[in-house]
Design a protein around this nucleic acid. Structure first.
Length: 227
DNA sequence: CCATAGATGCACT
DNA sequence: GTGCATCTATGGC
């Protein structure tokens, strides 16, 4: 499904990912992640991502060096790092920077542009914009799990691959603090497309037994650059 | 819309 | 044992 007979899907190249996550992340907005499975293909146009800066980044799984779990992050750019969290959710990253540098971009949300029925079968009968609104929801809608850890998204023959933007991004790219992270960093490492209903609403990580922070931006559609 | 609680497996201290 | 790069259900406004 989704490709002409005998043609090969166009994918982003290794060189695109062989740069720091902070550079790659905003350029991924509008690109399309696609997964083939026995149930059919699902494609999602990315509307929200987050950069993780490996050993420089206290919030990164790679902050304390390589482990069996995060090994893929230290490997080839353009490969997929899938992790399991909260006892029930999978989230997926695209690895950035040359091997040895654990830089990666978390895919946080997107718009299902192909395989709507397949995605809905996995996520249930909810408004379409909610199918991939949130990193674990996006992964579920795609049908991605443990088995996809280490897949090469730059391989056109891969079941899990990343396509370039099919159209220019004609809205503002917003930047803000990451979700679930409290490192006190001043650099905004979360990026999203302005006005997208598929962007997950921002919550300043519901810390256990701590009052809500009234100074945090409560909206998923917060201000853009320099605002 | 917003806020909170509970679920639940596992990597790592 | 602790704490998750989270989600859903349920409650209030």
């Amino acid at each position: 499904m989704g490709r002409g007979r005998g043609s090969v899907p166009r994918v982003l190249g290794r060189a695109f990912f062989a740069r720091p996550a902070l550079v790659v992340a905003p350029e991924l907005l509008g690109c399309v992640i696609e997964h083939d499975s026995a149930q059919g293909s699902v494609a999602i146009r990315l509307t929200e991502v987050e950069a993780y800066q490996g050993e420089l980044d206290p919030a990164s799984h790679a902050f304390r060096g390589p482990t069996p779990r995060n090994a893929v992050m230290f490997g080839e750019p353009g490969f997929v790092y899938v992790y399991f969290t909260y006892g029930m959710h999978f989230c997926m990253n695209l690895v950035c920077a040359p091997p040895g540098t654990a830089s990666a971009v978390l895919l946080r949300a997107g718009e299902v542009v192909e395989g709507l029925d397949v995605a809905a079968g996995r996520r249930g009968d909810i408004p379409a914009r909610g199918l991939a609104r949130g990193p674990a929801r996006l992964t579920m809608a795609l049908g991605v799990g443990r088995a996809d850890n280490g897949a090469n998204a730059c391989d056109p023959a891969s079941d899990l691959r990343i396509r370039p933007r099919s159209a220019a991004v004609d809205v503002a790219i917003n930047a803000g603090p990451r979700v679930g992270v409290s490192t006190g960093e001043t650099v905004p490492w979360r990026f999203w497309l302005d006005g997208e209903p598929t962007v997950s609403s921002y919550r300043a990580h519901a810390r256990r037994r701590r009052p809500a922070n009234p100074s945090a931006s409560p909206s998923g559609h917060a201000q853009g650059f320099g605002a």
